[in-house]
């Protein structure tokens, strides 16, 4: 009697988890499996399907251009994430000071995040345009330059330019996360520190930063994954140029798939990126777990 009840109960359990399992399977497991399947095929996704095994993986891991794309992605993601944290944290600290009109400032500072990436990229592309851009016009007017500057013509300035624009677009979410974290730090800690004679900088270093650590780690995972595979701003501003100087992996994948129509290799690149991001997430998660312990 008891075992029949248990059986029924376990069947109901499966029944209730079925919708979630179906959604997870159709939205995550199946597309991932399909990408891995395609990465082992030479295919145009219509009529040509030829199994090539791990050929594309082997090619990619020895391909200097792909390795260089990975390097550029790492540099881009690193500086954007650091930039977002520096700007976001700084603004969060300022907004946390109970200023007058803090809500208005918050809304204004959130605007870059609210704008679509396409709009942000095109606005900055126009601002940086050497012949009719506002930046050259202003610098010319105040006499800082005497001829039009091509901001994106060198490899370094092009990469720095897209990092700057991505940081401008991305800092608000970090700012809001940090601000939310700061609001959760009990004010008693600051009061006690003040009584003990701690300066504002000491309070920030010994109370605010440790208090933000869990949020910092979670935001770091999200930010790294987001910017490592970023496409839109770079594609619209430089298309990966000049001569591949800003060709991050997502642009390489796009060009493989829709320029070269080599969907198998593009899928193999995507799987490699997925693996890298999974490894990064694992280390971050371990850091969070250690933190909680």
């Amino acid at each position: 009697m008891k075992s029949a009840f248990k059986k029924r109960e376990s069947r109901s359990g499966y029944f209730f988890t079925l919708p979630t399992l179906l959604i997870v399977f159709s939205l995550i497991i199946y597309p991932l499996g399909y990408a891995i399947f395609i990465s082992m095929q030479r295919t145009n996704l219509i009529s040509e399907w030829k199994f090539v095994g791990a050929r594309y993986y082997a090619e990619l891991l020895t391909d200097a251009e792909f390795i260089n794309s990975l390097k550029i992605s790492l540099i881009f993601a690193f500086f954007v994430v650091v930039g977002n944290f520096v700007v976001g944290l700084l603004l969060a600290v300022i907004l946390n000071q109970n200023l007058k009109f803090a809500t208005t400032f918050k809304i204004i500072l959130m605007l870059p995040w609210l704008l679509p990436e396409v709009v942000v990229a095109l606005i900055w592309k126009w601002l940086f345009n050497p012949t009719y851009g506002l930046i050259n016009y202003i610098l010319n007017t105040v006499g800082l330059i005497d001829s039009d500057v091509s901001w994106f013509d060198s490899s370094t300035s092009a990469l720095a330019g897209v990092i700057f624009v991505a940081t401008w677009k991305g800092y608000p979410i970090v700012m809001i996360m940090m601000l939310a974290g700061m609001k959760n730090i009990p004010s008693e800690r600051y009061e006690a520190a003040a009584i003990d004679g701690a300066t504002r900088i000491q309070q920030f270093r010994h109370i605010t930063l440790p208090g933000l650590r869990p949020i910092f780690l979670v935001t770091c995972i999200l930010e790294t994954a987001w910017w490592f595979k970023h496409f839109t701003v770079i594609w619209l501003m430089t298309s990966g140029g000049p001569a591949g100087a800003t060709k991050v992996v997502s642009i390489s994948i796009y060009q493989q798939a829709f320029g070269d129509f080599n969907f198998g290799k593009a899928a193999a690149e995507s799987v490699i990126i997925l693996t890298i991001l999974l490894a990064a997430s694992y280390f971050y998660s371990r850091a969070i777990r250690n933190d909680n312990d």
Binding site: F128, T131, Y132, S147, D148, F152, A158, T238
Partner: peptide, 21 residues
């Protein structure tokens, strides 16, 4: 060549022609 040739796509180049740049 007007500066910024790597960012000069068709729309930008057409405007340069139209504006006499």
């Amino acid at each position: 060549v007007p500066p910024g040739q790597f960012q000069t796509g068709y729309p930008e180049a057409s405007v340069q022609i139209g504006k006499g740049q």
